[in-house]
Structure formats: structure tokens, C-alpha cells
Simulated scan of single mutants.
Amino acid sequence: MPTHPAILAATDPAQGHGGFIGWILDLMDTLGEVGVGVAILLETFLPPIPSEAVLPGAGFLAYEGRMNVWLAWLAATVGSVIGAWIWYAIGAALGRDRTRRLVGRLPLLDYDDFDKAEAYFVKWGGVAVLLGRCVPLVRSFVSIPAGIEKMPFWRFTAYTTLGSGVWNGLWVGLGFGFGPAIAPVLDRWSGLLSNIVLVLLALLVAWFVVKRIRRRRMRASHVTD
């Protein structure tokens, strides 16, 4: 009788995963808690690496006694924060004026868009950073506007640590708490949830593009009249 993939995952977290994901899971198995931190640091810069698939692998390893669950969670959170610091530094290096000029030159955007986004971030930046750490794709780039607007570094770090800690704790905890039993659920639903979020983001982008094109056409028609 063939062994269920979930049982194999408990003894070999890379089992059933090929390519880069398999390599990441094997990295955690080899380096332990340090590998977890490295994996999440890479995930910060390579959004196609879903933390929802990586972090439960760390939980499985902790369930098997091959790493400490608290140290795995801590390493994942440290990796998240370091990655966020790097993106924050990139945003700070770009600066407000340079970014505003860049936005004004982009198709379908103008300076008014930057000004509105800036006003929104000044008002809700802390909440955006906190909640953004729990949203696929967004969590990789929400640090950039924080750097551009020079959000106080200690405040940015606190929001990032809290949001990342909750997110990482959820997925590591699921892998540790349920062991092999959670694997079929994660295989089915973690990817689905990420895809739903990405589809919603794509729809928002499409809505923005359509709305902006219509506005440009209306402006052009008024000028013609």
C-alpha cells in the first residue's frame, strides 16, 4: 500500500515538492532554524515562493523533533524583518521627490496619484504595514512606501515584527500542531487562498486601468470640445 504524501512530508519535507520549493524545504531540513530564517528572507524578495507552503514545513520538522518550534518561529520573523528593512532602505534611497517624478512619467499615472497615495499612507501607514505583512505579494513591497515617506524606523520595525510574527506563528503553528494530518489541507487550501488574493489584486489593477483610460478619454473629449 503506497505511503500517503502527508506521511512522507513528516519525514522528508521536500517530498512531493520539486524545483525551488523543494530546495527551500530541504534547506530548512539541513540548516535547521537558520534555514527557516534564510527561506523567509528569500521569500521576501521572491514572492512566487509562498510562505504558506514553506512555514508549515518548518512546523513539520519541529513536530518531528528536528528543530525547536519557537526558534523556528523566531528565525522566520527575523528573516521577515531583515527583508523588510532592505525594502525600506530601497524606498528611502529613492526618496519622495524622485519617486514622485517617476510616478508622473508612468503611463496612466500622474502626480496627483502620488499625492493621494502619499496622503493615504501618512494617515494609515502603520495599519498598511501591519496588515500588509499578512497579504501575499503585498508583504514584499509594503516596506517601500514606508521608506519613501521615512516612517520612523522603530515604528516601522514594530509594525513589521508584529504582523510578521502573527503570520509566521499561524503557519508554523499549524504545521507543528497538526503534524502530517494538516498536510492535505495545506496542499489544497494554502495555494487556493494565495491565488484568491492574487486574483483580487489583478481585478483591482484591471479596474484601475479601465477607470484611468476612461478618465483620460473624457479629458481628451473635453479638450476637443
Rank of each mutant, 00 (worst) to 15 (best):
V135S: 09
W167A: 03
R214L: 10
V135H: 06
A93R: 15
L31Y: 11
W189L: 14
G179H: 10
D26P: 03
L198I: 10
G165A: 07
G125S: 04
S80Y: 00
K150G: 03
R98L: 11
V38S: 03
F45H: 08
Q15A: 13
F176M: 02
R66Q: 10
G125V: 04
K123Q: 07
W167Y: 05
G32R: 02
F45G: 11
D110N: 07
G165V: 08
A6R: 10
R100Q: 14
S80K: 00
W189D: 15
V142N: 12
W87P: 14
G95Q: 14
M218P: 13
G79C: 01
L71D: 10
E149P: 08
G175D: 04
L137T: 06
L94P: 14
G59A: 03
N68S: 04
I40Y: 00
W154I: 11
A14S: 09
A10K: 07
F156R: 05
T160N: 04
V166G: 08
V81A: 11
G173Q: 07
G132I: 03
V36C: 00
I182E: 09
T77C: 00
V199P: 09
I24L: 02
M28H: 01
S143Y: 02
M67P: 02
L201H: 07
V185E: 13
P107I: 12
G35N: 01
T3G: 05
V103H: 11
R216A: 06
P13R: 07
L130R: 06
L42K: 02
V69K: 01
A14C: 07
L193N: 07
W124M: 09
E52A: 06
R214T: 07
A89H: 12
E64R: 09
D110T: 09
G163W: 15
M67W: 00
M1Y: 10
G37I: 00
